[in-house]
Amino acid sequence: MVDRSQTPLVELKDISVSFGGVKAVDHVSVDLYPGEVVGLLGHNGAGKSTLVKVLSGAYQKGGGEILIDGKPVEINNPRDARANNIETIYQTLALADNLDATSNLFLGREIVTPLGLVDDSAMEAECRKIMGQLNPNFQGFHDPVSALSGGQRQSVAIARAVYFNARILIMDEPTAALGPHETQMVADLIQKLKAQGIGIFLIDHDVHSVIDLCDRASVMKNGELVGTVNIPDVTDDDLLSMIILGKTPTPVTA
């Protein structure tokens, strides 16, 4: 089980984000412990993606505080997030379609030769290594990623997030575009990463996959936090009513 007696890996405290007067995220606080998977649930537009984009540096927060290992950090852009070992798998995958898998894997963090030139052979070797672990069927190392299948593109995005020793992983609907086989692959990967002590925020629409994969779930509605629950303590109906009605379940008498 997850040990929650220590300092959390990440604390998002009282985060607000607004876009031109519309409050997309309204004073939300969530936290994440090492080796834990926290699901973020909610309707489209509930603000869950916006919340984690504050952590990944894609959006700037309007208010609140981000703490990593209990220390406040400033995350103003994706570079800051990466410097704090935060990696993100975006729903859109965020791949440069005209480049091959290797270039995408190392985008922004290329291996360079002593002369400062990018070392394509060394990067391709590393790319083949990690792809061999993640998706042994992966082909087409020299094709632009636009020519790859949905599952292969997804594995490139996942490889990019896990290759660089992430401590905090954000997955925004990682299985939305995948078939059953690849979905299982992602589920196995999440278990493996959990065992390595990586903390994961998992955004998902599917209540059942959250119940299967997560330790806790935070539910959002209209930019506000409905509540955070321990998965073993709730049923799928409880989660659904949180999502739809915005009601926290009556605490189970313990």
Binding site: A58, T92, L107, G108
Partner: peptide, 29 residues
Amino acid sequence: TIVARRTRFGRYVFATGGNPDAAALSGIN
């Protein structure tokens, strides 16, 4: 040609052209 193919600057130029959002999210200024 060396700049385009073998330097980070060149790589970022092509990445930005392929998908500006992805390039920015990869930490490219």
